[in-house]
Amino acid sequence: MAQAAHRGTPPRVIPGFGLTLGVTLAYLGLVVLVPLSMVGVEAGGLGWAGFAAIAAEPRTLHALAVSFGAAAAAAAVNAVFGTLLAWVLVRYRFPGRRIVDALVDLPFALPTAVAGISLAALYAPNGWIGGLLAPLGVKVAYTPLGIGVALVFVGLPFVVRTVQPVLAEIDAEVEESAAALGATRAQGFVRVVLPLLAPALLTGFTMAFARGVGEYGSVIFIAGNIPMVSEIAPLLIVIRLEEYRTDAAAAIAALMLAAAFALLLALNCIQAWHRRRVGAP
């Protein structure tokens, strides 16, 4: 097989181009591209008017607003604390640092449903944290705040893991020069370190945001899922599917996919900016 693929392309020394690219394209087409295009086909079957009617339903708009709003808020929290954690991990030496470093990836490894039931139990009015907050009148579980908590859990490693390597590469000299020129430590961070971190920070924020918008498993247990209050867009897709309103489910999915692709494009632009700033190796 590899030989046959090689015969047509004599300049290539290594064989297997036809076989491997063929397998790659066929697999990608059958598993990813054809199924994904079905969202467009199904939503397109509604026609513009039908699609717009579903998109403009108050419940659809509210679910999208909850998903995007909670994801943005959680990504903002993670941008601050993720940078802080990356800073602590890169700049400080303390006992257990390696364990803490490994633990940052927990949300990547822990199944979302496990995180979801655990967070719901923690923040429920009788839970470890919910019990402390209840006397203060703060409700987290079964409110939009709970959705934010779940998305902070899910998104944290994205920020830490994009900021951490860039922070490690920053030369101590630039900070020393800033200090020598009279900058305080805080000025040095805000004026010198932060601009160098900006592309990585924005990448991490966007990745955490994109993940949060589509997140399902960790959210639905803590959210309470009250329509027009704490119902997320992915859950509304599931509900429409269970009502046999497949076209409505596909329409909401099409809106979310469009947003996801826009975010992917934004990420590529940020990364091009990042490469320009860091300089090609």
Binding site: P35, E215, A233, I237, A253, L257, N268
Partner: peptide, 30 residues
């Protein structure tokens, strides 16, 4: 473009990842 397409599933909500197969193979699917 191929490398971008390989990463595509990471950008898709898990619920949509299930939905697309329902649209293909479900009772009312293609």
């Amino acid at each position: 473009l191929l490398v971008t397409l390989i990463d595509l599933p990471f950008s898709v909500s898990p619920v949509i990842s299930g939905l697309i197969y329902v649209l293909l193979f479900g009772a009312h699917g293609v």
